[in-house]
Design a protein around this nucleic acid. Structure first.
Lengths: 237, 237
DNA sequence: AAATGACCACATAGTCTCATTTGGTCAAAT
DNA sequence: ATTTGACCAAATGAGACTATGTGGTCATTT
């Protein structure tokens, strides 16, 4: 009884290859934009044949969806690792990640230079809605803990936060590079503005403070979990 | 000695005609956008011949520049009339005017649907810079009066304000109409956010309060003056 | 002098054709 | 069982030419 055919591959190697392909895609997209990045380019850069890419994803769009999901998952994981304990800090960490992640920024701002034809498709498709729902829930908790103003509904709070983050990031990349606020200062301004706009301005008591930290950690756990799950789906596991 | 030729026209009638032309242009631009609005359309709607328009402005672009300047002057006059006495109220009145003026909003947001090819030209050409300079001066005064936080430079304050206004207005017209915050509530949110983000949170004393009112009125006077002057230039006087 | 609208140069939109590129498949190689 | 790259249909782009529409002018009219 002799063995025939090639033995099955190590799934870990396959995953590693998927990530290598995504790395290649990320570099190319950041440099040339979605429209001008071809599957052949990606394959060449990743050191695999074109067909191999189609072993992982059925279409070009799915490849890029996976890329964006991975980016989001990494971003959220990074934020969670920094363990922000308040809304203000959470926003700060989020902003800090955003300014160093061109892809996430492009998605947030709907930058057609980078996203090309898929500019308007992914926007409210997923990030918008369930990210919004979970966040509003989190805001509700904070409100009961007296950590955010009670004179606005959670959807309004969410709108405020969205406007602040969106506004700062967009004006940033409209500005002539010369007179641009340095990134780290910008992040501070975003965090502080969000804190002032949403917070109550009072210092919470010890127990309340711990509860706030727990709520924030919980929110991040949820988000990371969702992001990871969606990523896993996109990597075909 | 007999009179020859046609008697000179009443300058007041000419001005009235210029405004009629601008009215026509405004309606058409708001409806069809800059690119799709032709001089012929404007002439027909205003009830004058095409050549007449060129008696007022040398090029199409100058006509539209005049239109935008008139709009801005009207907006600022309106705001001044409401006599806001604090930064918060100033922002509120400004926002209220913006949400009801599609053209100003288009300029602020760089809406290419409306502005077409001239999207990126007028932006930092004038509104951006000298509006910015005068505003930063005003912020400096408020700061010395203890009405705004001293932990940020005026350019930073300006950036914050820009981001807030920009962010709210942009997210507003991205949103599906259904789940949009009502305009009046949105204006409140903008004003309040700006107040919280820039203000010191303290209630100023009587004299300080009056000084703040005076500074605000002074700023508006300056802006109205500049706007009127530029408008006058654009109407060929 | 003031106003007009026929007129022109020119940019843009449309159409057709031909050459190249690209997403996706699959028989062959390992 | 995996991986590959030659292969194909379909999309995209380049080129050449025409039709249309538009900003701006100016001889003519009032």
């Amino acid at each position: 009884m002799v063995k025939v055919g090639r033995p099955p591959q190590d799934p870990a190697r396959q995953l590693e290859r998927a990530h290598r392909i995504l790395d290649a895609a990320a570099e190319l997209i950041e440099r040339w934009g979605y429209d001008k990045t071809t599957i052949d380019d990606v394959a060449r850069r990743a050191g695999v044949a074109k067909g191999t890419i189609y072993l992982h994803w059925k279409t070009r769009d799915e490849l890029f969806a996976a890329l964006l999901r991975r980016e989001r998952a990494h971003m959220l994981e990074e934020v969670r690792e920094r363990a922000p304990a308040t809304l203000r800090d959470l926003v700060g960490e989020l902003a800090a990640e955003l300014v160093r992640r061109p892809l996430m920024q492009a998605v947030l701002l709907g930058d057609s230079e980078v996203l090309g034809k898929l500019t308007r498709r992914k926007r409210r498709g997923e990030s918008g809605l369930d990210l919004g729902a979970a966040f509003e829930e989190y805001l509700g908790e904070l409100r009961e803990l007296g950590a955010v103003r009670a004179d606005r509904t959670p959807p309004e709070q969410f709108a405020v936060l969205g406007a602040v983050i969106y506004g700062f990031l967009h004006t940033r990349d409209i500005m002539p590079e010369a007179m641009r606020t340095p990134d780290d200062r910008l992040v501070e301004l975003i965090a502080e503005t969000a804190g002032l706009a949403l917070g109550t301005g009072t210092t919470p008591s010890g127990p309340a403070s711990r509860a706030i930290g727990r709520a924030t950690a919980g929110y991040l756990d949820t988000m990371v979990e969702i992001a990871r799950h969606k990523l896993a789906t996109s990597l075909g596991s």
